[in-house]
Amino acid sequence: MSGAANPVQPMCPCEGEDPEKLAQFEQRIAEGVHIEPGDWMPEAYRQGMLRMAEHHANSEIIGALPEGEWITRAPSLRRKLALTAKVQDEVGHGQMLYRVSQELGKSRDDMLRDLVMGKTKYHNCFNYPAPTWGDIAMIQWLIDGAAIMNQKTLADGAYGPYVRTMNRINMEEAFHFKSGEDMVLTLMSGTKLQKQMTQDAFDRWWAVSLMFFGPHDKPGAETMPAMRWRMKIEKNDSLRQRFVNRFAPAAKDLGLIINVCAKDEHGYVTSVREDEQCVRDEATGNWGFTDPDWDEFFRVIRGNGPCNAHRLNLRRFSHEQGDWVRRAGAHGTITTPPAA
């Protein structure tokens, strides 16, 4: 799962590019032609696609960490099998996306090293805690639901290898989402305690889900290179509204209350008030919602979220623990595994 559409940063103008080739490239994009490896592309496009695919790949493997912690505590064998398969899927998605990135010019080894050294980013939503099984249900229902919405638009992008990979990933994400929906439905059909656990988890993840699509679009976003070159297809605010229109009524029908929450530095809710804006506008058909705390969003991006250090350090621990395996595979060098 990932919200890879959103790390697109301002890209440098195409200075120094051949104007004729650039015009041909832009015309192809406008006509809906896919760009394949070996085709000419502006350097800014290659860098932008690399940044986007690498961020997406990083998000997939870091995204496996909070759920991976729950495999041993899944409440039934079927849930355990499903969660194991899901975590494996996410790591597999990371592998596929690193391969797409490699074709754009960066080695996988460098990408993994840059990730654990904090030189590159991953999606913000994985820097929050998942203290209960209800959080795992919410990650699969809300975050994977948001991810599919986002990734379905990315599958309409222009870069062939990324499009093929998105189509494959979306097929697997559908299982993640459906499994999460089943878990939420089960919990909300359960005991009073289970319902309360689900509401608490929903409170922790609703605003995070709204942030998933990234900050508000800048004016003229559709004419900037990221959208003009069909690296991303839909604006952040438009995707967010579609998400709310689908999930707000579903949550309410399930008996969940959509709250505006304050959180402490560990990501736990300290106070709640019902979101009075979360009603359907009969004229537009859109559901209203209170904006998430964008200061928190940027604080987490800068590395100061509840779990940033924990996630990165655990990834580094795994990377260093696996070093002897990689050396054995690459060079036939057999060394003693490190003590855990």
Binding site: R113, R316, H319, R327
Partner: peptide, 8 residues
């Protein structure tokens, strides 16, 4: 980090 191993 320790020196990288390159890609498989």
């Amino acid at each position: 980090l320790p020196e990288g191993t390159g890609d498989d």
